[in-house]
Simulated scan of single mutants.
Amino acid sequence: MMESNEDTTKETPHQNYMESRNTPYCFVKRYGSLTFDEALTQLRDSLKKADFDIIAEMDFEKYLNKYIKNLSSYKILLVCNKKTAADLLSYDVQMTTLIPCKISIKEIEGEALVEVSIEDTEKTWAISEKKEITDIAKNIKQTLSDILNQIGPKNVKL
């Protein structure tokens, strides 16, 4: 078999804000006044304050660097709250296929913007169809949404 020298890497499509905001399985916020590292630090701090543990962190930029050209800083965090996980499993042991929650943080438009996308648990966990899980999912969605709103410039003088 002959080896090909053909470049097989792909490009990621440009995703406009309205398109990413209307993704049905996550909610999104963009930040133009923070670096990737500042936003990531604030995200980690906010998760910790809300009693979420970061179970795993995947550097997608490094993981896919041979497959996607010019992928900017891009991480995926798997996060979980122990009490919530215990409650979910007490109602439906198969919820382990849907938890932990996923959060992505990435640079877009060069390094001009940082985008944080958080799984919409109210939608992704609704497949369980159990009222107890629906209630938990709504509360977790609100908590994660609040975390998005905590990220931003600090000590800004006007």
Results as ranks from 00 to 15, higher is better:
residue 46 S to E: 09
residue 71 L to A: 15
residue 3 E to V: 12
residue 79 V to P: 00
residue 4 S to I: 12
residue 51 D to R: 07
residue 16 N to F: 15
residue 60 F to L: 11
residue 82 K to I: 13
residue 57 E to P: 02
residue 153 P to G: 01
residue 80 C to P: 01
residue 87 D to W: 00
residue 58 M to D: 11
residue 54 I to S: 01
residue 148 L to P: 01
residue 118 I to F: 06
residue 74 Y to L: 04
residue 115 E to K: 09
residue 73 S to R: 14
residue 1 M to I: 08
residue 86 A to D: 10
residue 58 M to A: 08
residue 142 Q to I: 10
residue 22 N to F: 11
residue 21 R to I: 10
residue 60 F to W: 15
residue 150 Q to H: 09
residue 129 E to K: 14
residue 52 F to I: 03
residue 3 E to S: 15
residue 73 S to Q: 13
residue 137 A to F: 01
residue 126 A to H: 06
residue 107 E to R: 05
residue 147 I to N: 03
residue 95 M to N: 08
residue 73 S to E: 12
residue 68 I to S: 06
residue 11 E to M: 11
residue 85 A to C: 09
residue 75 K to H: 10
residue 15 Q to T: 12
residue 115 E to P: 04
residue 123 K to G: 03
residue 23 T to W: 15
residue 147 I to P: 00
residue 88 L to I: 03
residue 78 L to D: 07
residue 67 Y to R: 09
residue 136 I to L: 09
residue 132 E to K: 15
residue 110 G to F: 01
residue 77 L to N: 03
residue 104 S to P: 03
residue 73 S to P: 11
residue 54 I to R: 02
residue 145 S to Q: 15
residue 3 E to D: 14
residue 108 I to N: 02
residue 73 S to Y: 12
residue 91 Y to I: 10
residue 154 K to Y: 02
residue 6 E to D: 10
residue 45 D to L: 03
residue 128 S to T: 11
residue 79 V to M: 02
residue 109 E to F: 04
residue 69 K to A: 13
residue 30 R to C: 07
residue 87 D to K: 11
residue 29 K to L: 06
residue 71 L to Q: 15
residue 37 D to L: 06
residue 112 A to G: 04
residue 143 T to N: 03
residue 13 P to I: 14
residue 2 M to E: 11
residue 59 D to A: 08
residue 51 D to L: 00
residue 27 F to T: 04
residue 9 T to H: 13
residue 107 E to H: 04
residue 64 L to G: 04
residue 43 L to V: 05
residue 115 E to D: 10
residue 151 I to Q: 02
residue 148 L to M: 15
residue 63 Y to H: 12
residue 122 E to Y: 08
residue 101 C to D: 02
residue 2 M to C: 04
residue 32 G to P: 01
residue 141 K to C: 03
residue 76 I to K: 13
residue 147 I to S: 01
residue 49 K to T: 08
residue 41 T to E: 13
residue 134 T to Y: 08
residue 23 T to M: 14
residue 138 K to V: 04
residue 118 I to E: 02
residue 58 M to N: 07
residue 90 S to E: 13
residue 138 K to C: 05
